[in-house]
Amino acid sequence: MKLKLVPGGAETPEDRAAEWAVRMDSRDLDDAEFAEFDEWLADASNQEAFDKASDAMALFDGLDSDLPELAALREEAQSHSASPDRRWVPWAGGALAASIAAALLFFQAGEVSERLPGAPSQVVDAGTAPLAGQAVYKTVVGEQRTVALADGSKVTLNTGTEIAVDYSPRERIVRLVRGQALFDVAHAADRPFSVIVAGRKVTALGTLFEVRLDQNRLRVTLLRGRVRVDEQPAATAATKVPAPTFLSPGEQFSLATGLAPVVQSVDVEQQLLWRQSLVEFDDAPIGDAIAELNRYSAKPIVVRDPRVADMRISGIVKTGDADSFTALVGAMLPVAARKNERGEVELYHTP
């Protein structure tokens, strides 16, 4: 997913406020633009919208000003804002989602091939002893680590993940106990590499793939090579084991409780944003976005008001920073944050 400015109508005060904020962040206004801005700002509703947009922009002060993604966005804002007959805003979609995206979409996801060599800061070497043995690797909430296994394979563990590695002379088995992991498998035709998870066995065929286990859902996403997904005999009472499922690059096997498995094409770039400490939402309910962000934070956000939970947002946000997320939401939507009686950060609706 490549971030770019797209033509829009700038029909609401919030839209125009975001446009002005991006334009003024990218360069100095000329005299004609200052006059236009002052005239627009004279309306009280416009002033309020611009204050919110400015607050949202200020939340990015902690970012590296030399980020190429931010520089590219500023450059494009400058080139398009000079056009007198076009309005340009940094989003696509409905006004509600757009108001958040205007504040959040200051990142650009690179190509998968460019991101894969980069690894989280902590790399653990599992050793180069004989290719047999058992070991357990874990991450706590908010932590990521890459484990270099004895056979040359690498496993990148996302937040709150646990795996158990069980190598023998005949096969390589990794059990995903919980969480999400990316497997970069070293080829060894005589010793198959398999991940055991939720009654399924995922066998690599020279492969880069990801497995995620949530409370009620399993997902297997293939990035390179080929994988085979088998239902293990112990997981079914049927006399005949179902046929295996083979995935091609860009496909995802998904299994939710009580539903039949589904295979579909997915945005692989989006699937790997977590390796960059980012997560993407595409017109997602705030309730779902919070559930995803809470995976990365020991300080969870809660929302009990369905009016807030059903509001929708789009954008790419940093993980593990609940305060910035709640501040951004509060700057752009009728939502505020407070500590409830349990000491939790709760989002609530404001008039």
Score class of each variant (00 low, 15 high):
159 T>D: 07
143 E>Y: 06
211 V>T: 10
144 Q>G: 08
222 L>D: 04
223 L>C: 03
181 A>G: 08
158 N>R: 13
196 I>S: 04
218 L>I: 12
193 F>W: 00
157 L>Y: 04
168 S>P: 02
131 L>S: 05
144 Q>Y: 10
140 V>Y: 12
202 V>K: 11
158 N>K: 11
141 V>I: 15
140 V>N: 14
127 G>M: 08
184 D>L: 07
202 V>E: 10
171 E>M: 01
214 D>N: 14
155 V>Y: 04
161 T>C: 03
176 L>M: 05
187 H>E: 15
159 T>Y: 07
127 G>N: 09
145 R>F: 07
146 T>A: 13
162 E>F: 04
152 G>K: 06
166 D>H: 01
203 T>A: 04
125 D>M: 12
201 K>H: 01
200 R>K: 15
176 L>N: 01
194 S>W: 00
221 T>A: 03
127 G>K: 09
126 A>W: 11
198 A>V: 10
184 D>Q: 15
206 G>L: 07
151 D>G: 10
216 N>C: 06
166 D>T: 02
216 N>R: 13
170 R>W: 01
179 G>M: 14
216 N>H: 15
197 V>L: 05
214 D>S: 14
149 L>R: 05
127 G>F: 11
205 L>G: 01
165 V>T: 04
200 R>H: 15
129 A>F: 02
135 A>E: 08
139 T>Q: 03
201 K>Y: 00
130 P>S: 09
187 H>D: 14
130 P>D: 11
144 Q>D: 07
158 N>L: 12
169 P>F: 06
124 V>C: 08
171 E>N: 06
158 N>I: 12
204 A>V: 03
213 L>E: 10
160 G>T: 03
187 H>S: 15
205 L>T: 09
131 L>C: 05
179 G>R: 11
155 V>N: 06
216 N>Q: 14
138 K>W: 02
170 R>P: 00
226 R>S: 14
191 R>Q: 09
136 V>Y: 01
189 A>Q: 10
192 P>A: 04
162 E>D: 07
207 T>P: 00
227 V>F: 03
223 L>N: 10
162 E>S: 13
191 R>L: 03
177 V>S: 13
181 A>R: 09
166 D>K: 00
128 T>S: 15
218 L>T: 13
212 R>S: 10
146 T>Q: 14
177 V>R: 11
143 E>A: 10
218 L>G: 08
180 Q>G: 11
207 T>Q: 01
187 H>M: 10
217 R>K: 15
212 R>V: 05
152 G>S: 14
205 L>N: 04
154 K>I: 01
148 A>P: 09
173 I>H: 00
182 L>R: 11
226 R>T: 10
132 A>C: 01
190 D>N: 11
139 T>V: 05
176 L>F: 01
160 G>K: 08
166 D>P: 00
137 Y>P: 08
189 A>E: 13
188 A>H: 05
147 V>M: 02
162 E>T: 14
142 G>D: 09
165 V>M: 04
142 G>T: 10
172 R>L: 06
212 R>D: 10
188 A>L: 09
160 G>W: 08
186 A>N: 04
221 T>R: 00
198 A>L: 07
208 L>H: 07
200 R>Y: 12
182 L>D: 09
219 R>C: 05
161 T>G: 02
141 V>K: 15
152 G>L: 13
218 L>Y: 09
210 E>F: 01
145 R>A: 14
221 T>H: 01
140 V>R: 13
135 A>Q: 09
183 F>H: 05
174 V>E: 00
136 V>N: 06
217 R>P: 04
147 V>E: 02
128 T>F: 12
189 A>T: 07
